[in-house]
Amino acid sequence: MQGHYLLMTTLLFLEQTLNGLQQGVMLFLMAAGLTLVFGIMHLLNLAHGSLYMVGAYVCATVTQASGSFLIGVISALGACAASGMVIEILAMRRLYAREHLDQVLATFGIILFFNELVKILWGPQALFLNPPALLNGTMEILPDTPYPTYRLFIIAVGLIVALGLRHLILNTRVGMLIRAGATHREMVGALGVNIDWLYTVVFGLGAMLAGLSGALAGPMLAIQVGMGENILILTFVVIIVGGVGSVRGALVGALLVGLVDTYARAFLPMGLREFMEPANADNVGAAASGMGIYILMAIVLLFKPSGLFQAYKGQS
């Protein structure tokens, strides 16, 4: 009986680890774009969550019209990259020289704009989107533990994107410019690189990643106005933990935050039940598990005030 209990607990722990990884991967897709924009352009972009929302809406609409989730995701990527670049050219470009407070104000305005736009275009009701039939089931990768195939798919996509970004940043010309731009902005400009163009591309890339995240989230979550604001707060926690501007930091930070949040929610109330009244344990557990990621952030900042990784100082 004891052995059986231990096995069950181990399986549950592994399943929760998968959940944490999956949450982390979603956060990474958001954080990668945000950290690039913040690290390279020194721009605080609160509207990143709006692009996530646009990604989900476009993906749901196109998937329903075309019957193909793949076409839906590709359209979402295109729509978000395009909106990102338009936003950059129309609005962000005017904000680089301003203070962070001005940027917060302006990008907050963009959030309101997108929320209203989406409400006008799609209405206030949440949209419907299922995972494609191929992924809409469960797989028993752990014995006795059917795990949603779609979540495994997200983990896979996230890791592929992480590898792709690593290649882009370390091995390509654009990546070199991004790294150079993060540390020696004026110098890169002085060497004749078109900085305006570089910024537009980076912003579009970040927007595209946010759109991918939103499109992938669609089948699991409520597609509704304001859905990006929830994830945005966690995303900021991620880039602060990981170190602003570092994509590697975003990946490590996102996985840490995803795992800590999931473990806290899953096991804290359970653990507290061992030495508290169940009702009290549930109350305390619910409150404490919500704090898990913020405690993580505080601890990281205590030892590494600028986050776990630094953005491309020397070679990283």
């Binding site: 399943e15 959940n19 929830n230 899953a266 549930d282 619910a286």
Partner: peptide, 21 residues
């Protein structure tokens, strides 16, 4: 099991895994 989640929570994977167990 009696579980209280965060108001506005979007992902319930952790709760669902516990629930199944």
């Amino acid at each position: 099991g009696e579980v209280y989640t965060k108001l506005g929570q979007v992902d319930y994977a952790a709760e669902i895994a516990n629930l199944r167990a």
